[in-house]
Design a protein around this nucleic acid. Structure first.
Lengths: 243, 243
DNA sequence: TAGTGGTCTAGACCACGAG
DNA sequence: TCGTGGTCTAGACCACTAA
C-alpha cells in the first residue's frame, strides 16, 4: 500500500483508515491487540501524527478501535458491555437492560433454505449451522431465537459445543472463529405466536410477539449470521434511540 | 461565558461546544441560520481555529450543525431527508422507505392522563394537544398514530390547523413553534389490534400490530412530544441498523 | 477574487498508566 | 520516569461557492 497525496487523490487520513482497516480484517491485528502508537505509525507512513490521529479518531467512532489514554490504541473486542449497549435492545418495563440467560434447544447442520441462503449470500443449498434456543429475562422465558450460520465459516461449531454455548455468542465468534461482528441490520415485525412458540414461552397461541430478524455483518460487509428472535413483549420492550 | 484553560478545567473545545449549543437552544441562532466562520469564532473566543473546528466537528456529528464547504456552517434543520433517514423507520417488504401520506382524524385539547403527563414531564392534568391520524404507505392505511403535545409549547396548534397538518410534523414544530426535535427514545412492542384499529386499517381485530411509543426531546433534553404508533407489519417492517 | 470549510504539518504541553 | 493518547496552537495550501 502506497499513500498518495497528489492533487486529486483521496485524503491521506482516509487512505490510512483503509490501511488500518485492512490490517484488522486481514488478521494482522486481532481484537484486543494493541496497535502501534500514533508516532510509530506516522513515522512508518511518512505523515504527521495529526493525520494518523484523524484516521484513528474516525475508526474509534466506528467501533473498530479503542483508545486508552496512557496505554495505547487497541482493536475493539466484543465484551459484555458492547453486547448490552450496542447489540441487545430488550428492556424490561422498568427500563433496565440485562443480558438474558440462554438455553440451547438444538444445534445441528442442515442445508440453507432459499431465503436463508440469499440473506447470507450463500449458494443455494449450502450447509449452515442451525441453532435454536430460548432466553430468559427476569427468570421467565421471553425470547425464542433461531440462529443460522454459514457452516463454511463456523466449522464444527455444532460438534464442539452442542448444548453448552455461552450466551454472548459474538464473543465466541470472535475468539473461536476469528469472526468479528461489526454491524447488523434488523427488521422488526409483529407476529402471532405459533403453538410451538406458545408452549415454549408459556402463553397462548396467537399472542402477538415481536419478531426481530437480524443479519449481522463483519467489517468488510460479509453477512455472517442470520438471527430470528420472537419476543414476548408483555413485560419487556425493544428499546431504540433515534438521533 | 468566559472560557478557562486552567490546569484542571474542562477542555476548551468542550466549553466552546456548550457555548455554541447555548446559542442554538436560546434561539440566538435559529435552524437554517449560518453561524460565524471558524476564523471569526476563534478571534472572538481567543482560541485557535483548530479548537473551534474540533467543537464544530462534534456538533456536526450530533446533527446540531451542518457544514457546507465554501459556504459556511449552518444550524441543522428538519428537512425531508432527516425525517426519512433519522426519524422514520418503516420500510416496505422490498426495502424501500417513503414518507407516508397522513390523514388527520382529530386534533383537540384535553387534559393529560397521569401516564402522559409523567412521560412529558408535565404536572398532573396539564393541557395537551391530542392528535389522531392514520398514515398510508403504498396507498394502504398502515399506521395509526396518536400524538400528544404539551399545550403550553404548542399554543393554538389545534385552532390553526385542525385537519390540515403537514405530514412532516417536526418541520412544523421547528418553523411554527421554534421547537427543534433533536433525539427520540422509542419503545417497541407487539400488541393485538383493537376493533377500532382493525376498522381503520381494514384488518381483523386481534391481528398483531407493532406498537411504537416514542418520546421526542429537544437539544436541551426537554420531552416535547409523545407519539404512539400502531403499524400493520404484514407488508412493512421497522428497520434498524445496529452499530 | 475573496472567503469558507477541508486537509496537513510541526511542535508544544498536559493527563494518564505502567514499570 | 517514560511513553501513550489528549489538547491546543500557528500556519500552509487545497477545494469549493458565491459574487
Amino acid at each position: 500500500m502506497v499513500l498518495s497525496n497528489a492533487k486529486g487523490s483521496i485524503p491521506l487520513y482516509m487512505q490510512i483508515k483503509e490501511l488500518l482497516v485492512a490490517r484488522v480484517t486481514e488478521g494482522e491485528w486481532a481484537p484486543g491487540d494493541i496497535i502501534p502508537s500514533e508516532m510509530q505509525l506516522s513515522r512508518e507512513l511518512n505523515v504527521s501524527q495529526g493525520t494518523v490521529r484523524k484516521a484513528i479518531t474516525e475508526l474509534v467512532e466506528n467501533n473498530v478501535l479503542v483508545r486508552r489514554q496512557g496505554r495505547g490504541t487497541f482493536v475493539a473486542t466484543h465484551d459484555v458491555d458492547r453486547a448490552l449497549f450496542h447489540f441487545f435492545h430488550i428492556c424490561n418495563d422498568s427500563g433496565t437492560k440485562t443480558l438474558p440467560e440462554s438455553k440451547t434447544l438444538s444445534c445441528r447442520k442442515k442445508r440453507a433454505s432459499r431465503q436463508e441462503a440469499s440473506k447470507l449470500n450463500l449458494s443455494n443449498g449450502a450447509q449452515v449451522v442451525y441453532i435454536e434456543r430460548t432466553r430468559n429475562l427476569d427468570n421467565t422465558p421471553t425470547i425464542i431465537e433461531t440462529i443460522i450460520l454459514p457452516n463454511s465459516l463456523f466449522v464444527d461449531l455444532g460438534k464442539r459445543q452442542v448444548r453448552n454455548l455461552p450466551n454472548t455468542l459474538y464473543e465466541l465468534y470472535e475468539t473461536q472463529f476469528g469472526i468479528t461482528i461489526h454491524r447488523a441490520e434488523e427488521q422488526l415485525r409483529a407476529v402471532a405466536a405459533t403453538e410451538n412458540d406458545a408452549s415454549l414461552l408459556s402463553l397462548e397461541a396467537g399472542t402477538p410477539l415481536l419478531k426481530i430478524e437480524r443479519i449481522a455483518y463483519t467489517l468488510d460487509g460479509t453477512p455472517v449470521e442470520l438471527r430470528i428472535s420472537r419476543c414476548s413483549t408483555s413485560r419487556h420492550y425493544y428499546q431504540n434511540t433515534v438521533l
